[in-house]
Computed example of a mutant assay.
Amino acid sequence: MEPDSTAPVSFPVPEENEPVRRRAIFSRAFRSVKSHHALSPNDATAVRGRRRRKTNDDSLQLIDDLVNRPMDPMFSDSRLVHEQRSVFSIWFNRIIVFLICVGVGFAGCLFVQQLQSDPRKQVRQTLADQLENRNAQIEQLTKDVNAVKAQVDEQSKKVSGKVKSDTLIQDELVTGAVAVTGEGITMTLADPIAASQSDQSTSTRVGTTSKIRVVTDLDLQQLVSLMFQNGAEAISINGNRLGAQTSIRKAGGHILIGVNAIESPYTIEAIGDKNTLAEAMGSKNMASLYDSFKQAGIYPQVNKSNSITLEAAVAGETQYAERNE
Rank of each mutant, 00 (worst) to 15 (best):
E325H: 09
E311G: 03
I96H: 00
E233G: 01
D217M: 02
N303E: 12
N285D: 01
K162Y: 09
F11D: 10
F293H: 04
A313K: 12
V174P: 01
A251T: 06
D153Y: 07
E172D: 06
S198L: 12
G103L: 10
D65M: 09
A280S: 06
A278C: 10
E279M: 15
Q222C: 00
A7P: 03
Y266I: 13
V123E: 06
Y290D: 03
G49I: 00
G176Y: 09
K164A: 07
P70F: 09
D4R: 05
F111C: 03
Q122N: 00
F88S: 00
L289C: 06
F111W: 15
R51M: 00
H82L: 13
E311C: 13
A244F: 10
G103S: 07
F26W: 06
T45V: 00
P300L: 03
S160I: 01
M286T: 01
T276L: 06
T186N: 11
P192C: 04
V148A: 08
A280K: 13
P192F: 15
A46G: 00
E139Q: 08
L131S: 10
T267N: 11
V13I: 12
G161P: 15
R23Y: 02
S5P: 01
V148P: 01
L39V: 08
Q140P: 05
M1K: 07
A312M: 10
G49T: 05
Q114G: 11
E18P: 06
T55N: 08
P300K: 09
P73I: 01
I25L: 07
L173D: 08
A315D: 06
S292M: 12
G243M: 09
K294T: 07
S5F: 07
A150V: 15
P12G: 02
Y290W: 14
E16A: 05
R23T: 12
A46V: 00
V67F: 04
Q301E: 14
D199I: 15
D217Y: 12
L173M: 14
A321W: 13
